[in-house]
């Protein structure tokens, strides 16, 4: 008989059950299947009521993140064979309100992402007109922020961050890393307009450098480092403002 594997999945259907529960499914074990393939198999062959998000199946869209045996991972990027013959337990990403089964609410993250202004900002009057062409940048200038631009907004870093689970006002790893992505971009002049949020208590100063955000990041963005670097820049700002008489005053 073909080998099979047990997958236990967090179920929450607000119109059916008040409290969530777990449901187990038996799926065929295949060497070349990722966890997402097994979930798709359950949805297609066993239980069509299961809800979850996915799209690209190749670690690009960032929509298939879930807790896999308690660790936030992209379900399209982990193979069943990494767990076989043990069971797999799937839950929605920690720290977010659950809408249904493995689907969680991401509004909070999207609001925060918008707040840090993730786009190039130029001083008034310093924008190039369209006919003047693009802003040029050397490969070395690109290297300063490229790592942070790899973020796919999968929110695994939020699920790994105990601070965010304890206090959801924390701006969080990805949003701060993305603010660094623009702050370190030679074409951008918007750091000051992001600083009010980034330099606030709910911004970088809420972070205690647990570091798990960077461990779980599937794109090696290293948000923990981005946050600590932003702390260094903010501290330098403070020294300039307070200690140097001719320093930049607010």
């Amino acid at each position: 008989m073909a080998e099979t594997m047990e997958i236990k999945i967090f179920r929450y259907r607000p119109e059916v059950e008040k409290e969530p529960m777990f449901q187990s499914y038996e799926v065929p074990f295949r060497e070349d299947w990722v966890v997402l393939d097994a979930i798709n198999y359950i949805k297609d062959e066993i239980d069509g009521t299961l809800s979850y998000r996915w799209s690209c199946r190749m670690g690009v869209c960032g929509s298939c993140g879930m807790m896999i045996n308690d660790i936030p991972k992209l379900s399209c990027a982990v193979f069943l064979k990494e767990y076989y013959p043990k069971k797999i337990c799937l839950e929605p990403l920690t720290g977010f309100p659950v809408e249904r089964d493995l689907i969680f609410e991401m509004d909070d993250f999207l609001t925060k992402l918008e707040e840090i202004k993730p786009y190039i900002i130029r001083h008034e009057g310093e924008e190039k007109a369209l006919e003047e062409g693009v802003y040029l940048q050397t490969p070395a200038e690109l290297a300063h922020y490229k790592q942070y631009s790899m973020c796919i907004n999968c929110m695994l870093c939020y699920a790994a961050c105990p601070i965010y689970s304890i206090d959801s006002t924390f701006i969080g790893p990805a949003a701060i890393a993305l603010s660094q992505r623009y702050n370190l971009d030679s074409r951008d002049q918007g750091r000051d307009s992001r600083q009010d949020i980034i330099g606030s208590h709910a911004g970088i100063w809420d972070c205690t450098f647990v570091g798990e955000c960077s461990t779980v990041c599937p794109k090696d963005v290293d948000p923990a480092a981005a946050i600590q670097r932003a702390k260094v820049s903010s501290t330098i700002d403070w020294f300039k403002e307070v200690l140097i008489p001719w320093g930049k005053k607010k």
Binding site: Y12, P14, E15, E19, P20, D70, I71, E91, P92, T94, G95, P97, V98, E99, F104, E105, P162, S165, I166, T208, V210, G211, E212, T215
Partner: peptide, 27 residues
Amino acid sequence: MSPYQKPFPNNWWLKRMPYFLFIIREL
């Protein structure tokens, strides 16, 4: 239909080694 908020246990730092090591580092 309200979303479900998973409770976050106080002993979260005992659940995984990296969290435990972090708390030790703080201590």
